[in-house]
Write a protein that binds this DNA or RNA. Sequence first.
RNA 1: GCGCCUGUAGCGCAAUGGAUAGCGCAAUAGCCUCCGGAGCUAUGUGUACAGGUUCGACUCCUGUCAGGCGCACCA
Length: 545
Amino acid sequence: MHASIQESLTTLLEAAIADAGFEEKRGGSPLEWALSAGFGDISNNVAMRIASAMKQPPMKIASVIVEALQKRLIDSPCRASVSQIKAEGAGFINVYLSDEYFRQVLLDIIEQGSGFGRSSEGKGRKVLVEFVSANPTGPLSVAHARQAAVGDALANILAFLGFEVQKEYYLNDEGNQINTLGKSVEARLKELNGEKVEFPENYYQGDYIVDMARRIRDEKIEVRDFAQYSSNYILDIIKKELEDFHVKFDCWYSQKSLRESGKQQKALDYLRSAGHLFDEDGAVWFRSTAFGDDKDRVVIKSDGAFTYLAPDIAYHGDKFARGFDWLINLWGPDHHGYIPRLKAAVMALGGRADSLSVVIVQLASIFRNGRVIEMSTRRGQYITLREVLDEVGVDAARYFFCMRRTSSHLNFDLEVAKKQSPENPVYYVQYAHARISSILRQAGIAARPQLPGSFAFGEKEEQVLLKKLWQFPYILKVCLGTLDPYMMTVYLQETAEGFHRFYDKHRVLGQDPACTQARLCLIYAARSVLARGLDLLGVTAPEQM
RNA sequence: GCGCCUGUAGCGCAAUGGAUAGCGCAAUAGCCUCCGGAGCUAUGUGUACAGGUUCGACUCCUGUCAGGCGCACCA
């Protein structure tokens, strides 16, 4: 929604409310315009909000406000943008925007092309989006794949909205799990060499461990530090997988470097001096309960080793030190219990509670023909990102992983994602883009088309499509507000549908010149929006399929 | 036992607290002398249960039931 029209209408509405004498009763009620569901284009519910304070029916109040609004409108600069204002339904104030306004919207979209919707709302605020951050102990699972798709899309959207975004992968390159990995590989190598060794249950069981050991043996690689060698080996695999998934990180942040650089010790010293640490039972504790956690947490175990929290405190402190003032972390659901203690750490370090946003990305279940593929990390059997990519391709995979709210479990049916049929929404959207491209090719439109001097879209399908395009900036705002790109997938499907319906009912080429030209403008604008929306999700927008 | 997420049509899912709860699949019947039929049109059943807040609840709150995931001096 265009901020300009929304803002000027809000100003008008405020004046109208004062004219009607409702100012006091409004109290703090905000005057937000919403996209209207069915009547008009945008609507406001202030009449319903103040109804009980006024002890009058909402519809009556709305009528009075609308009357005042109409008077105000006469001398307002946005008069040309509004065709009607009505009180309707339960007491909504509905604004019907004019053909002239939508004509201007179309001109804007054509001029800005796929830059339509870009804004400076983020004001250059520095945001660090940390995601995936899987331990380099095995190939990426589908849970990581979902985080990768969601995190990357979210980062794209934030950047488009004027934030200065950095994408980061936190690398747990030391600790128990890495050591266990090293031992697992070493044990498998001994087995290959004919030694009889025990292979405990907590060792990594996957075939890739055996593959690694076999490679070490076959290529006669001399390994001094199995933990380091193995984790580097796997990290290379992970990097390649993410690259093939078209997810690029700006920074791979090493946990080990936190300890080696002394940042970890510094952070703990700071907490100690600020009185947030205490000693008990031979361990060092962080008093996280002082910041809302439900119990205090150990940072140094009684055996002298650090818990995961120690480097994590330092890590987040360092994020602030690097100038980021909004930290967005995408975590799997197994980490949700960790949020309060990390928030506590952020506050103990002097940050505001809301400077850290944690998005929990629920798990994805992989289906094949309606049947779930059972997963067991214990036996080392699980579907990897690699397998999904090989089977359905980048576009379908990225689109599918974003297609549900992050807080919901996602069911991903490999057979559906692979199908090039209407069941598969990503093709539905891409097909709309390709179809438009085909028409524009035939019309010989390479650059921006010109909108005829005076032309109004009279057909319902034209108007529906144009209004859909107009909503694009609003959808971006929703994604920002929810920190979730999934609404974009819903929007793109609806926009593609708007085009397909238009296409089926009306012809673009071969109409009278003004009509053809106007429709070329409309579909050109639609293509720009579809292309940008897909691009933000990391999905290609093909000109031909 | 405690915490987080989820419960909407046969299935998979939509719906910034808003108006007549939508879409796809599956089913049936149609639409290419015409810009790409990977498309379009028509036909119908539903908010797990019980309370509460609100002018208004799929949405928020409480409880019950069901499913998933957590609950370390692991990461």
